[in-house]
């Protein structure tokens, strides 16, 4: 399971941040060639990010590069970046499965023969992108996640972006649902006020309740809060262990049906419990035997 609780944007034109991107403990670092970089600096940033991918140790963090949109510098970006072996490319403003097909073709052309295939994360940040979410997620096996970019999306709606986020509720649930249907991850839009820790906490808790598996982040200070929300709680872990115990017991007794506290334990519940335990194990949250 790819862990993407937090995906941290690092400006692609900032050598200091590129060098230190791995120290913040984000599950993914997104080396950004798009919004963080002014048009005049695109060349320099592309070069810096390519060098960073070759030389900087990002530790346990997955390396993702946000390229420019298809109608601007996507082709140049992919050609320069893909041979440097990033784990994934974050494609902005994806609006259709055709966009993904185009990106896949470019990536395939740029990959070295023995290279691990570069994954794709689709950033949906237009009303069209939201409408096409499911088809985008299903467009190619390289697509591993859908991410929501709410700033551009709200502008596309002609709505005002608020901290409460009422205006993006529909988009959020569509992205989550499409991703779940296509069996890929859903990643929530960043919380843009880096100084408002309480707001970030509330927004991240909402994202988790709705079903997102992680959140984009624009500041390293946000990582701990985001992780604290997406990490399974001790209650979660306890519950999951009981579920698995009930299933094993039922299997041992030859019964087809397991139950926990009077409720039937069916496959989706088992899947959820397994996911929690797997996450807990990955994160070293499992204590001794219960």
């Amino acid at each position: 399971m790819d862990l993407r609780r937090s995906m941290l944007f690092i400006p692609g034109n900032n050598p200091g941040m590129l060098q230190n991107g791995g120290v913040f403990g984000a599950d993914s670092v997104i080396l950004d060639l798009e919004d963080a970089v002014a048009p005049m600096e695109k060349d320099a940033a592309r070069f810096l990010v390519a060098q960073a991918l070759r030389t900087v140790d990002y530790g346990a963090s997955e390396t993702v590069v946000r390229i420019n949109p298809l109608d601007t510098f996507a082709a140049v970006d992919i050609k320069a970046i893909v041979p440097c072996c990033p784990d994934a490319i974050l494609v902005p403003k994806v609006e259709s499965a055709a966009d993904i097909h185009q990106v896949v073709a470019m990536i395939a052309a740029a990959e070295k023969p023995d290279q691990t295939p570069v994954k794709i994360i689709a950033l949906l940040e237009t009303p069209c992108g939201i409408v096409e979410a499911y088809h985008i997620a299903k467009a190619d096996p390289r697509v591993v996640a859908l991410a929501l970019g709410a700033e551009d999306y709200t502008a596309g709606l002609g709505a005002m972006r608020t901290k409460e986020g009422t205006e993006i509720f529909t988009a959020r649930t569509i992205v989550i649902n499409a991703a779940a249907a296509a069996n890929v991850q859903s990643i929530d839009t960043p919380y843009t006020d880096a100084n408002d820790e309480e707001g970030l906490l509330a927004d991240t808790q909402l994202a988790k309740r709705l079903g997102f598996k992680g959140k984009l982040s624009i500041n390293p200070r946000q990582i701990d809060v985001i992780h604290s929300v997406f990490n399974p709680s001790l209650n979660d872990i306890d519950w999951a262990q009981q579920v698995i115990h009930a299933i094993r017991k039922a299997e041992a007794e030859g019964s087809g049906v397991a139950s926990l506290n009077g409720k039937m334990v069916d496959l989706p519940i088992v899947n959820r419990a397994e996911r929690i335990l797997h996450l807990a194990e990955l994160l070293g949250l499992m204590g001794g035997e219960k």
Partner: peptide
């Protein structure tokens, strides 16, 4: 400074 904050934390 994010690195300074990381160290402090």
């Amino acid at each position: 400074d994010p690195v300074g904050l990381k160290i402090a934390e």
